[in-house]
Lab assay of single mutants.
Amino acid sequence: RIRTTFTSAQLKELERVFAETHYPDIYTREELALKIDLTEARVQVWFQNRRAKFRK
């Protein structure tokens, strides 16, 4: 699998949801994935990585 490059619009939306909750449920992730045209798996991994970055 190649590395996913996020558009600024996708990042803006991901960060907006992250500001609300660091642990979005499956429904939130799936809805977000559809909205920004990514797979739910990519959204899930983005949140994992974002939480790791947040803890640092």
Rank of each mutant, 00 (worst) to 15 (best):
L11C: 06
L38D: 11
F47C: 03
I36M: 11
A41F: 06
L32G: 01
L14K: 03
V45G: 11
P24M: 01
W46D: 00
A33W: 00
T7A: 03
A41K: 13
R3N: 09
R1H: 08
Q48E: 13
E15W: 03
K53D: 14
I26Q: 13
W46I: 01
L32C: 02
L32T: 05
A33L: 03
F18N: 06
E30W: 06
Q44N: 11
Y27C: 13
W46Q: 02
R42P: 05
E30M: 11
A52R: 12
T7Y: 01
R29G: 01
W46P: 04
A33N: 00
T21S: 08
R1Y: 03
T28N: 01
R42M: 15
A41V: 08
A52D: 12
H22M: 11
L14W: 01
V43D: 00
V45T: 13
I2G: 13
Q44L: 09
F54V: 08
A33Q: 00
R1I: 10
S8F: 06
Q48F: 02
V43S: 01
L14I: 01
K35M: 05
D37W: 03
K12N: 08
F47Y: 06
L38Q: 08
I26T: 11
R50E: 14
A33I: 07
D25L: 01
V17H: 02
V17D: 05
L11P: 06
F54R: 07
E15R: 02
I26V: 14
F54W: 14
A41P: 11
K12G: 07
Y23R: 05
K12C: 07
R50F: 00
R16D: 10
A52L: 13
R55S: 14
Q48D: 09
T7P: 04
Q44D: 14
R51G: 05
T28C: 08
Q44R: 13
W46L: 01
L14F: 02
N49Q: 15
A33C: 07
R55L: 14
E40I: 07
E15A: 02
F47Q: 05
F54Y: 12
R42D: 15
V17N: 05
L32K: 02
K56L: 10
D25F: 01
K35D: 04
V17F: 01
A52G: 08
Y23A: 04
T39K: 07
L32M: 05
L11R: 07
F54S: 11
T7N: 09
A19G: 11
E15F: 01
Y23W: 12
Y23P: 00
R50D: 00
R51A: 05
L34I: 10
E15Q: 02
E30L: 13
I2T: 14
V45F: 11
K12R: 13
H22G: 03
S8M: 06
R1S: 12
L38V: 14
R51D: 07
R1A: 13
F54T: 12
F54G: 09
R50L: 02
R1N: 11
L34H: 13
R55N: 14
T5L: 09
D25K: 00
H22T: 04
L14D: 01
T21N: 10
H22K: 08
K56T: 09
L32H: 05
P24K: 00
V17K: 11
T39F: 01
E13G: 05
S8P: 08
Y27S: 15
L38F: 00
F47D: 04
T5D: 14
F47H: 00
A33M: 00
E13P: 00
E13C: 05
R42C: 15
R50C: 06
R42T: 15
E20M: 10
K35R: 11
A52W: 07
N49T: 12
L34D: 13
V17L: 11
I26G: 10
E40P: 12
K56G: 05
Q10P: 02
F47E: 00
R50A: 11
V45H: 12
R51P: 00
I26S: 12
